[in-house]
Simulated scan of single mutants.
Amino acid sequence: MIFFFGLRSTKIVEKQATIPCSHCEEKQVWFFIHQNYFHLFWIPVFPLWKSTTSVCAHCKQVLNKKEFSNALLDNYKIEVTKAKTPWWTFFLLIAFFALLVFSIILSQCS
C-alpha cells in the first residue's frame, strides 16, 4: 500500500512593514508568516511550526527570521501574536475524534 505523506505550509500573514530594507533602503518590505503542517494523502493532520520570511518589493532581497533587523523583528513579534493557526490544519485529527465519539454513542444506543 502506498502512503502519501509529508509537510506543507500555508500563508497565514502577509504584512507590509514601514521599515527600510537593509540592502536598498526602500520602505517596501513585506513579511510573510507560514504555518507548516503534516499531511497524509494531502489531508492536513496537525500543525507543526510557523516560519517567517521578509521580501523587499524593490530589490527582491529575501531574509529569514534569523536575518531580520531589530526593527523588523519587533514588527514580526507583534504580528506573530495575532497570527492564529488555521483550524483546518487539525482536520484529520478532528475527523478521527468525531468518528470515535460517534462510534461510542452508537455502541451505547445498541
Results as ranks from 00 to 15, higher is better:
86 P>G: 00
1 M>V: 09
109 C>F: 15
109 C>N: 15
7 L>Q: 13
23 H>N: 13
24 C>V: 01
21 C>N: 07
46 F>K: 12
104 I>L: 11
45 V>I: 03
31 F>M: 04
71 A>L: 06
50 K>C: 02
96 F>H: 07
27 K>Y: 11
108 Q>P: 03
107 S>Y: 12
29 V>L: 01
93 L>N: 08
41 F>E: 05
96 F>V: 07
94 I>S: 09
43 I>M: 12
52 T>D: 01
58 H>V: 14
82 K>Y: 00
51 S>T: 10
87 W>L: 03
62 V>S: 10
99 L>G: 14
106 L>R: 14
30 W>R: 08
106 L>C: 11
39 H>T: 00
110 S>E: 15
100 L>T: 14
87 W>K: 03
88 W>K: 03
83 A>Q: 00
14 E>G: 05
35 Q>L: 10
2 I>K: 10
7 L>G: 12
42 W>N: 05
6 G>V: 03
105 I>M: 12
13 V>L: 06
68 F>N: 01
12 I>K: 02
41 F>L: 07
94 I>C: 08
66 K>D: 08
25 E>A: 11
7 L>P: 09
36 N>M: 07
105 I>G: 12
90 F>L: 06
34 H>C: 08
34 H>Y: 09
53 T>M: 12
37 Y>V: 00
55 V>N: 02
54 S>T: 08
91 F>P: 05
67 E>D: 01
34 H>R: 03
30 W>N: 08
52 T>Y: 04
84 K>V: 03
25 E>R: 08
75 N>R: 06
12 I>W: 00
103 S>K: 13
55 V>G: 02
5 F>A: 04
19 I>M: 02
36 N>S: 09
75 N>I: 04
103 S>Q: 12
84 K>A: 04
13 V>W: 05
9 S>K: 01
32 F>I: 11
57 A>V: 09
82 K>V: 01
89 T>K: 00
37 Y>A: 00
11 K>I: 15
65 K>C: 07
89 T>M: 00
100 L>E: 14
49 W>I: 05
54 S>V: 08
39 H>M: 02
19 I>Y: 00
100 L>W: 14
6 G>A: 00
3 F>N: 14
16 Q>W: 06
40 L>K: 13
65 K>E: 06
74 D>T: 10
81 T>P: 11
38 F>S: 03
25 E>Q: 12
57 A>W: 06
64 N>A: 12
42 W>A: 05
94 I>A: 08
32 F>K: 11
14 E>K: 02
13 V>E: 11
77 K>T: 07
99 L>R: 15
59 C>W: 11
41 F>Q: 05
6 G>R: 01
8 R>W: 09
93 L>G: 07
99 L>V: 13
88 W>G: 02
20 P>E: 11
30 W>P: 04
11 K>V: 15
10 T>I: 03
31 F>L: 03
103 S>N: 12
99 L>P: 14
84 K>H: 08
64 N>I: 11
25 E>F: 09
76 Y>C: 00
18 T>K: 12
94 I>K: 09
71 A>K: 10
33 I>C: 02
102 F>E: 14
109 C>S: 15
32 F>S: 08
